[in-house]
């Protein structure tokens, strides 16, 4: 029997309400297997971020269906979607979204805050995650004092500390130089061994070339690379 894909989206669509409704995404059908690394490319306004937000359960779809890890997410309450995000999804953002006055360890711990882990367990796992991204000597450092590459590695540590099934990254190398970009891609590559699927929105051809597959969006539609 064939294994169930981690991500199964069928005719997914998103229309933003307003005086003039905006159809940001339509008829998006795609599947992603566990451990697969998928790049989403396309010009600005093509619906990349909207697709990422839908896959990350940060917003409701207007049409279609989305199954994550075999679970139908249609009609879930906000609380249930929050629980799924906490347990199965990790996010990495271009702007890092770290909490400046806090240390690398405290920022990484945040990735487990909403999962009822005891403080000691959160700390242990966060330290492991920071070691995994090569920041063992920056554990207690305030993130304000870290370089851009180090900050992004803290953000990745926060995203992977809960061992998510799906990692969503929005322009993760957008603010980094080439060396730091390569370091981030190496970290993502290592996650494949953990069977973590990765969806990376990027404008960078170098990043897209590193991925197993490329989905191209244009005018809110998947132009190529959707279903396998």
């Amino acid at each position: 029997m064939a294994s169930t894909p981690l991500v199964e989206a069928t005719d997914l669509g998103k229309t933003f309400a307003g005086p003039v409704p905006v159809e940001a995404l339509r008829d998006a059908t795609l599947t992603i297997e566990g451990g697969e690394q998928v790049a989403i490319v396309g010009p600005s306004g093509s619906g990349k971020s909207t697709l990422l937000n839908l896959l990350g359960l940060l917003t409701d779809s207007s049409a279609g269906s989305y199954r994550l890890d075999g679970l139908d997410t249609t009609g879930l309450s906000e609380r249930q979607r929050a629980s799924l995000r906490a347990e199965r999804i990790g996010f990495v953002f271009q702007e890092f979204h770290l909490m400046g006055p806090r240390s690398s360890l405290e920022n990484t711990e945040l990735g487990l805050l909403y999962r009822r882990f005891p403080k000691r367990e959160r700390r242990r796992r966060a330290e492991e995650a920071l070691v995994a991204v090569g920041l063992e000597d920056r554990i207690g450092t305030k993130v304000d004092r870290l370089s851009g590459g180090e900050r992004q590695r803290v953000a990745i540590a926060r995203a992977i500390v809960g061992k998510p099934r799906l990692l969503l990254a929005d322009e993760p190398t957008g603010n980094l130089d080439e060396a730091n970009s390569m370091a981030v891609l190496d970290l993502f590559a290592a996650l494949r061994e953990e069977n973590t699927a990765q969806v990376i929105v990027t404008h960078d051809p170098l990043v897209a070339d590193h991925c197993d597959r490329r989905i191209t969006l244009r005018y809110g539609r998947i132009e190529s690379g959707g279903p396998r």
Binding site: T73, R79, Q80, L84, Y114
Partner: peptide, 21 residues
Amino acid sequence: RRPTVRRSGVRPLDFLRESAA
């Protein structure tokens, strides 16, 4: 299959810790 989602949550002490931080 309907989703079986474990309810996420925060320990009360962690709310206090977060606010203090």
